[in-house]
Simulated scan of single mutants.
Amino acid sequence: MSTAWQDLTGRARLRDAAIEAFAAQGFEESLRSIAARAQVTAGLVRHHFGSKDALRAECDATVLERYRQLKEESLQADPHQLFTHLPASAQGGVLLLYILRSAREGSAAGRKFTEQLIDEALILLNQSVSRGLIVPSRDEPARARLLILQSLGALVLHFALNPPQDPEDFAAVMQDYYSRVALPTLEIYSEGLFTDSAYLNEYLLATAADVPPATDAGITESR
């Protein structure tokens, strides 16, 4: 009889194999293929998880936790260290493709996963505001939702137009995507897009009853 430690190790190995399989091949990947990737029998997958839906739920939770950890580490890392190692990150590639598959799927599980991504983004945004890394928003939940939906939309279109030659080469997938989006993303986030705040000011005047005053949000009023 296996020990609890052995069960946990086997379960974790199967979960990670499933995450990679779903990321590379999609959520239609069979339990048999997942078991082969983990070098175990298909029966062992059912022993640990009971069903494919239960396995998917645990994979979703694990990917969300790893996404959160990766984002937190990137916010705390020295920029030189971050930009030296991130492009070649195989783990980042796995997360990228898994999130892509979930967003593109359109199922109840995919919608739930997207909402969880938004919740995670809101937590990270609030932490970043508290640390002084980013400016506050007049509506933090709305900003978190917009950033995630924009990111997911860009992700879906990017891979529709530029399908990876080898979806199993997670590091290469990450490096290719990163090389295309890093500069324009950092430019927009760091330097902005408009040369002045005229559009924002007019919008705030037109919707004054619905938008909290800038001073209430902790934002310096635009000049």
Results as ranks from 00 to 15, higher is better:
residue 223 R to S: 10
residue 89 S to H: 00
residue 44 L to N: 11
residue 73 E to Q: 00
residue 58 E to F: 08
residue 79 P to K: 04
residue 27 F to A: 08
residue 49 F to V: 15
residue 141 P to R: 01
residue 23 A to K: 03
residue 204 L to G: 09
residue 204 L to Y: 15
residue 139 D to N: 07
residue 103 A to T: 02
residue 202 E to H: 09
residue 97 L to R: 01
residue 102 S to L: 08
residue 77 A to H: 09
residue 116 Q to H: 14
residue 113 F to Q: 00
residue 137 S to M: 03
residue 126 N to L: 02
residue 172 A to M: 10
residue 131 R to F: 06
residue 1 M to D: 12
residue 100 L to R: 15
residue 12 A to N: 13
residue 165 Q to R: 01
residue 96 L to Y: 07
residue 75 L to K: 14
residue 123 I to T: 11
residue 217 A to N: 09
residue 49 F to L: 14
residue 17 A to K: 14
residue 85 H to Q: 07
residue 30 S to I: 15
residue 102 S to R: 06
residue 93 G to H: 00
residue 152 L to R: 10
residue 102 S to N: 09
residue 147 L to H: 06
residue 87 P to D: 02
residue 106 G to H: 05
residue 164 P to Q: 15
residue 172 A to N: 04
residue 157 L to V: 06
residue 96 L to V: 04
residue 18 A to F: 11
residue 196 D to K: 06
residue 77 A to T: 01
residue 223 R to P: 10
residue 191 E to A: 12
residue 162 N to R: 04
residue 58 E to V: 06
residue 100 L to M: 13
residue 41 T to F: 13
residue 38 A to N: 05
residue 25 Q to T: 13
residue 217 A to M: 01
residue 123 I to D: 04
residue 84 T to F: 01
residue 64 L to H: 06
residue 212 P to A: 01
residue 41 T to N: 15
residue 158 H to Y: 15
residue 67 Y to E: 08
residue 103 A to C: 09
residue 124 L to F: 05
residue 109 A to Q: 12
residue 197 S to L: 02
